[in-house]
Simulated assay, not measured.
Amino acid sequence: MSGPAFVVAVAGPPGSGKTSLTEALCRHLGGAPIVSYDAYERITDWPPDRVADWLRRGAPLAEVPLPGLATDLAALRRGEAVPDRARGGTLRLGRAEPRIALFDTLLGRAHAGTGAFIDLLIWLDVPLDVALARKLRSFTAEALRDPRAGPPLLTALDAYLGRYETLLRPTYAIQRERVRPGADLVLPAAPLADLLAAALPALARAMPRAAAEIPR
């Protein structure tokens, strides 16, 4: 093995399917490690008035707290093992070429501290109303799987919808405005199999020396 790992990032609004595509790429690439933005972000811990103030000040992405994320991305890119902060255990690159790491992210290259490690950025261009519908179904699907979870999920859903118009939707609009232009590949809403079929040739083109080793 030689040279740094190739980092493939998938970005899109919540509900766009970025996690599903990242996991599909992981399976297709023989278990490539996944670094998850959600395991590091702390902005969802902010009270609503702090988020509102951040939006009023132009939503500076450099202020989004992501403790440890840049450090872990840099280490993994060098071939070092890092803690899997989303699922537990350890993230490490496979022994075989091509050495690829996956990054499930909301901010793509728009966040300077972590975007510098991205070699290929895929943006899932899903309309916000479709993404919202998918997000809501994630709440209802969980409640249907476990009826005992219904009341807490209803409370969480009410809180999510209560923040959506004034805080969340403006944030997602800013995300699209700033992250999408930096993407190497923009994919419209489509079934997962179609997204994967479009992403793999882009990956092969982006790293031609390893193209023969990327499964189709």
Rank of each mutant, 00 (worst) to 15 (best):
R42D: 00
I43N: 03
D45T: 14
D45V: 00
D49E: 15
V51M: 13
L55R: 09
L55K: 10
R57P: 00
R57H: 12
A59G: 11
P60G: 11
P60K: 04
L61G: 02
V64G: 01
P67S: 09
T71C: 09
D72G: 04
A75D: 08
L76T: 11
G79T: 10
E80G: 02
A81E: 12
V82E: 00
P83K: 06
P83R: 04
A86S: 09
L91R: 07
L91P: 02
R92Q: 13
G94H: 05
R95P: 10
A96L: 13
E97L: 14
P98D: 07
R99L: 11
R99T: 10
F103R: 01
L106C: 02
R109L: 06
A110F: 03
H111W: 01
H111R: 05
A112P: 01
G113H: 03
G113I: 07
T114R: 03
T114L: 06
A116L: 11
F117L: 02
I122F: 02
I122T: 01
L124E: 05
V126T: 15
V126P: 02
L128P: 06
D129Q: 12
L132N: 07
L132K: 10
L132C: 06
A133Q: 10
R134H: 11
R134M: 02
K135A: 12
K135I: 04
S138T: 14
F139K: 08
T140E: 10
A141F: 00
A143Q: 12
A143L: 03
D146N: 15
P147D: 05
P147H: 07
R148T: 15
A149T: 06
A149Q: 09
A156I: 10
A156W: 05
D158E: 15
D158R: 15
L161R: 06
R163F: 04
Y164W: 14
E165Q: 14
T166G: 10
T166V: 13
R169D: 07
P170D: 09
A173C: 13
Q175C: 12
R176L: 04
R176I: 07
P181D: 08
D184N: 13
L185D: 01
V186Y: 05
L187R: 03
